[in-house]
Amino acid sequence: MKTNIILAGVGGQGILSIAAVLGAASLKNKYYLKQAETHGMSQRGGAVVSHLRISDKPIHSDLIPMGKADIILSVEPMESLRYLPFLKPHGYLVTNNVPYKNIPNYPEMDKLQAEIDKLKRKVTINADGIAKEIGNLRASNMVMLGAASNFIEVPSKKIEEGIAEIFRSKGAAIIQLNIEAFRKGKTTAKTTP
């Protein structure tokens, strides 16, 4: 078992929480894990990326080699494309389709969608919309984790335990909300063509 995941987004969108949840879940499953994060300057509204590697054997590099990512999991559509050089030929691109426009020259959404559509295996969902329906926009990152979980070889039960662990300090209601977001993301992605 070996899964390489590129987590992409904009500083402040919560990709480190996704990484933390998957990290905790992997550890519970006795898997090895390496996860390189972006700290510092880029966290101020810049492009951020995390390389997450899960395996049943020891992992050498903290960085995923080019062309070796099984999944690109992005909470923002343009950011999902920035890391395409890392994606395997038949890897999955799973992205939120709600753009985060904090730059003046953000490309047109239909052109971004056309680029995404060129890929064989992709899932785009409106994670913000689903999170709002559940009751908190901030849970959109867990919606995206749910969507990608269909392609990650870590049991969903363990991921939900990871959510409970990472959000423990925020109370039972927040844990439940994030688990619900995760489940909704998972089922939505399954039914998205």
Binding site: R44, G46, A47, N102
Partner: peptide, 29 residues
């Protein structure tokens, strides 16, 4: 990076499709 080592040792690497041109920089702000 692993890729730079692969280059140095002339090992075969996965094909790289490159970043689509439409993607623009997003500097911190």
């Amino acid at each position: 990076s692993p890729g730079l080592l692969a280059n140095a040792l002339q090992l075969e690497q996965a094909k790289n499709p490159g970043i689509p041109e439409i993607v623009t920089n997003r500097p911190p702000s």
